[in-house]
């Protein structure tokens, strides 16, 4: 079991409020990603759940039990660190076994569990090596092995893939997601990379400046962002924002449209502009368009379009995919 509930959790370092009143309900077995720009408090929130920091106020419940004041070791969670934090003086076997040894399991049980975890992660040939003799990806696996072998109530991941190269990152992303589904253990995963968040999560928590901006499934966040911040943060390239007045909707402070929802229209149809840069990726074409008063717009068109800098074009937004925000940046639902 691994149901985690945050009730009014606050954290401040001196006068600085890092987390302001976080409320969250994480279901057993789900994969939840905390995402946000650096300094938003996502890592602090994870460390509060881990017990590596004390909360300033509020409650953290794990399976209904308040764990505030309970030391990290007694919370039944395991953590994968950004730096992997492997014990450099122990072999892979020693690293994976350490938690079990601390728990006082008999030798034979430890061996059996370590072997099983190593087999799951393809680490069996490396069990007797030291961390420094492993590649980045292998170290990453050891860190994960150390986390799964203890059969915790939940895994905590703190930006675990950020030290890997791009190709390996994509591969590990899938492996971690697959492993989590297979073990059906709750996972909380911190990242600043919204692509990682979108691809791995059952549910995403978007954090900004110590506030939870929105909590929902990836597609919910994409289709129905609750505010300007989430709208701008989720999706790549970034959503275009134009002032409502200029776009002919004076009742709306800001109008948002995603680059993939801007279509190239016929002459005289939609918003006029001049292409300033065209990026041809083959599968897509990204157009950066100077649209005068509307500002700089980004359009993403599927397939190859033969535009170049200086071309005049017309962009028409998909009316069903427009996002409207009031002057406080909150979405206007109609």
């Amino acid at each position: 079991m691994g149901q985690i509930t945050l009730q009014g959790v606050r954290k401040s370092f001196g006068p600085v409020n890092i987390i302001k009143d976080a409320n969250l309900d994480i279901e057993n077995g789900s994969f939840v990603v905390f995402v946000g720009p650096s300094g938003c408090g996502k890592t602090t929130l994870l460390r509060l759940i881990a017990g590596l920091e004390d909360v300033t106020g509020g409650q953290i419940l794990i399976d209904g039990r308040n764990v505030v004041g309970v030391p990290p070791a007694k919370r039944g969670l395991s953590m994968v660190f950004q730096s992997y934090a492997l014990y450099p003086h122990m072999s892979v076997r020693g690293n994976i076994a350490f938690g079990l040894k601390m728990a006082g399991l008999p030798r034979s049980d430890i061996d059996r569990k370590v072997e099983a975890a190593a087999a799951t992660l393809n680490l069996t040939p490396y069990l007797d090596r030291k961390p420094r003799e492993l590649s980045g990806g292998q170290r990453q696996r050891v860190a994960i092995g150390r986390a799964i072998v203890r059969e915790p109530k939940a895994f905590l991941f703190d930006e675990p893939l950020s030290n890997l190269d791009a190709a390996l990152r994509v591969q590990m992303r899938m492996e971690v997601a697959k492993l989590q589904k297979q073990l059906a253990t709750t996972a909380i995963y911190v990242t600043h990379d919204q692509v990682e968040a979108m691809t791995m999560a059952d549910k995403i928590v978007v954090l900004n400046a110590g506030n939870i901006e929105q909590y929902g499934s990836p597609l919910e966040l994409y289709e129905r962002p609750a505010n300007l911040f989430v709208a701008g943060f989720i999706g790549s390239p970034k959503m275009n924002f134009v002032p409502g007045e200029v776009a002919g909707e004076p009742s709306v402070a800001t109008l948002g449209v995603r680059p993939e929802h801007l279509k190239i229209g016929k002459e005289g149809e939609g918003w006029p502009g001049t292409v300033s840069v065209a990026e041809h990726l083959g599968s897509d074409t990204f157009l950066y368009v100077d649209a005068g008063k509307l500002g700089l717009l980004t359009a993403r068109c599927i397939g190859e379009f033969n535009f170049k800098a200086g071309d005049r074009i017309w962009l028409s937004p998909d009316p069903a995919r427009l996002h409207r925000f009031d002057k406080d940046g909150v979405v206007i639902r109609t």
């Binding site: 070791a73 492997l86 150390r146």
Partner: peptide, 25 residues
Amino acid sequence: KDILEAARMDGATIGRELVYVLTPM
């Protein structure tokens, strides 16, 4: 610090953290 925190997550008390992790390193 991560490594000491990892030991703490792994269930080591401060004493064991000193003996098994900090001292050897």
